[in-house]
């Protein structure tokens, strides 16, 4: 397979390089908003998101965003939803990216049979249509956020592994790595001391994208009714808004906020990844 060429895509943004920082800033602002919301959920949320009140209240006093079909406060759901959604996104992406990065680093450094095997495997996982497989996996492991996280991670490591490996192949030929080797540095030392720092940028950009991807996947799974019903993620909120007539009734205060939150948070991660784009242009797999 033609490896090197695939990864070589140049760096150049749509915004002039000066606005690069603005993009990053925008991403950071969006994300800090959500992260603060998630961390301080009990302080921000006006109610317990599980407490029942009158159903289908429109926005008003006491319930700034109204209530859902069984009378739970929507704003509180939204605030607590940030916790669950971001948690799923972060953890799934962390698992996928760190596994992918570790594999990419080591096989990129070691080469040989392991490299061949892992990259074939990566090709395989790269080619598998992700969503249907996550669905199948979740269905077999059964609903629950841990299973969703595991399923997303299992199917998400490949693209990171490929990109990191490609970068390692470039870095390992650089003089400082060669001289370290000549000085008799061990493999692990070189990987951790030289290769990891020099691929960190790629890994972080990839991780940021992976979070975005994981959040979208979770939303899709929830929409199909395979989410974790005991957890209030944004995806589950949307699921209930759809399945309990929120959309049909035109209760925009129910279905609009979670959708906007998902989109904004995903956008935030995409912008961040884009600003740090080492893997040029390709934000996605």
């Amino acid at each position: 397979m033609l490896k090197s060429k695939r990864a070589v895509v140049a760096a150049s943004g749509p915004f002039s390089s000066g606005s690069q920082n603005k993009v990053a800033a925008a991403g950071i602002i969006i994300l800090s908003f959500f992260i603060i919301m998630a961390v301080f959920a009990p302080l921000v949320a006006p109610h317990d998101p599980f407490a029942l009140d009158t159903p289908y209240l429109p926005p008003g006093k006491g319930h700034p965003l109204g209530t859902n079909d069984i009378g739970q406060d929507l704003l509180s759901e939204l605030v607590y939803g940030a916790r669950v959604s971001l948690f799923i996104g972060f953890l799934a992406a962390f698992l996928a990216t760190s596994a992918g990065a570790a594999i990419g680093l080591f096989v990129g450094y070691l080469r040989g049979a392991w490299d061949e095997l892992c990259m074939r495997l990566a090709d395989l996982f790269f080619l598998i249509p992700a969503l249907p497989l996550v669905i199948v996996l979740v269905a077999y492991l059964k609903p629950g956020i841990w299973n969703i996280i595991v399923a997303i991670a299992i199917l998400g490591w490949a693209s990171t592994a490929r990109v990191v490996r490609a970068r390692v192949l470039q870095v390992r030929e650089m003089p400082f790595v060669k001289s370290a080797k000549a000085l008799g540095a061990g493999g692990l030392y070189i990987v951790l001391q030289h290769l990891l720092p020099n691929t960190m940028e790629v890994i972080l950009a990839k991780a940021s994208l992976a979070i975005a991807g994981a959040m979208l996947t979770e939303a899709g799974i929830s929409f199909l009714g395979l989410g974790d019903p005991t957890q209030k993620s944004w995806g589950m909120m949307l699921h209930y808004a759809f399945s309990h007539g929120g959309v049909i009734n035109g209760y925009w205060w129910w279905y609009l906020p979670p959708a906007l939150c998902i989109s904004l948070a995903v956008l935030g991660f995409v912008l961040l990844s884009y600003a740090g784009r080492e893997e040029k242009g390709g934000w996605g797999n």
Binding site: S12, P14, F15, S16, A212, L216, A219, G220, F223, L238, F242, A259, I262, S263, L264, V266, L267, V270, L271, W283, G284
Partner: peptide, 23 residues
């Protein structure tokens, strides 16, 4: 590059990428 067309295209790409498809 860096014209209004490019920027519109970029912004739209970001928006549609970030939108869940079922939504």
């Amino acid at each position: 590059r860096d014209t209004l067309l490019d920027h519109t295209c970029t912004v739209l790409s970001f928006i549609f990428y970030s939108t869940p498809n079922f939504w």
